[in-house]
């Protein structure tokens, strides 16, 4: 695909418009919004983790409106069944000759799916999302249905309320391109939130893009070149999370049980391309890798008991690894 400077500028412009429009309904959280958009431009799914009330659901709702995409929300509960997500075949009597099964698409048949509190559903139901998230298809009764393009799953989960929840399995987590931690707003931001949400008037959102344009933007992002040293940096970063790898650091061997999968490297590079573009560059830089490494890898690194008991987090280890790799540059 040949791209022009105009197209590339258009990407940055569109993203700026989206961010600007979202800002009408979201106070602060600019970094979070930027990361969600990076994830969308890279065609990935995002898992938003944060305590209740930080605007996770609101962000996804707003995003659905602003992008002009078909949006659906699934509130995950323990009694939610897979069919409630992907849809099911129902008997219809439309045919005069007799009844027939007709597939009734579930809420997953949408461009943006908000999987709210995804960890409250049972693993069985959570697993219903696997195929949709990775292959953008669902299979019901031996029939595979293509999901609309673009397709993103933006899930939320509450990290502190563990009772009655089912932690996401590794396979499920790996299908999220980014895991984003929603920070608590600052005083200023909190004031803005309160004023915005308790007042009478609220600005009306308008879509600033559409699915076709968004797909085009995603294709343009893929054109951004990555130099070999930069690519190597990302790959070494991922390999360094594996305790058994030759690139593993001492800290990795000591505190990590499982490292990131190749999807982690894919996530880093894909989102780094998008970030480079949004930063006004036509190439991926090391700093893009450093930036996207945290949301790309933090849910793909599993600490061992020593790491957990030592109070370490995946972000701590990623920082250490990046610091070490920087020395080798």
């Amino acid at each position: 695909m040949e791209v022009s400077e105009k197209q590339i500028r258009h990407v940055a412009e569109t993203v700026r418009k989206i961010e600007s429009e979202i800002a009408k309904h979201m106070v602060g959280q600019k970094e979070l919004i930027r990361q969600v958009l990076l994830c969308i431009l890279a065609g990935g799914n995002a898992l938003l983790e944060g305590v209740p009330g930080l605007g996770k659901t609101r962000l996804v709702n707003t995003l659905g409106v602003v992008t002009g995409l078909k949006f659906s929300r699934i509130q995950f509960t323990p009694d939610l069944m897979p069919a409630d997500v992907v849809g099911t075949n129902i008997i219809t009597r439309d045919n005069p000759e007799g009844g027939a099964f007709k597939f009734q698409p579930g809420p997953v048949f949408s461009n943006i799916v908000l999987a709210d509190e995804i960890n409250r559903a049972t693993p069985k139901t959570q697993s219903a999302m696997l195929q949709a998230m990775q292959e953008k298809t669902v299979t019901v009764a031996n029939t595979t249905y293509q999901l609309p393009r673009p397709f993103f799953v933006l899930a939320t989960q509450n990290p502190i309320e563990m009772e009655g929840t089912y932690p996401l399995p590794e396979a499920q987590l790996d299908r999220f391109m980014f895991k984003l931690e929603v920070p608590f707003p600052t005083l200023e931001e909190l004031a803005g939130i309160v004023i915005m949400t308790t007042g009478r008037t609220q600005e009306e959102l308008r879509p600033v893009t559409n699915s076709e344009e968004l797909l085009e933007l995603m294709e343009i992002v893929k054109e951004i070149p990555v130099a070999r040293p930069v690519l190597d940096f990302a790959l070494k970063l991922v390999l360094a999370t594996h305790p058994e790898s030759e690139h593993a650091l001492e800290i990795t061997r000591k505190y990590i049980r499982y490292g990131a999968s190749p999807r982690g490297a894919q996530a880093i590079i894909s989102t780094a391309r998008a970030r480079a573009l949004l930063e006004g560059r036509y190439n991926v830089a090391f700093e893009d890798i450093r930036y996207t490494a945290y949301p790309s890898l933090r849910h793909r690194i599993f600490l061992n008991f020593e790491g957990l008991s030592g109070g370490l987090t995946a972000d701590n280890l990623i920082s250490e690894i990046i610091e070490e790799l920087d020395k080798q540059l």
Binding site: E5, E223, P225, A227, P229, V230, Y282, N283, V284
Partner: peptide, 22 residues
């Protein structure tokens, strides 16, 4: 210069639009 030059060096034989822009 944020890896602009390494990338340009690698793309020196590439005449695609992105390479030229880069």
């Amino acid at each position: 210069l944020k890896e602009r030059l390494i990338t340009a060096w690698e793309l020196q034989d590439d005449d695609t639009g992105v390479a030229l822009l880069q």
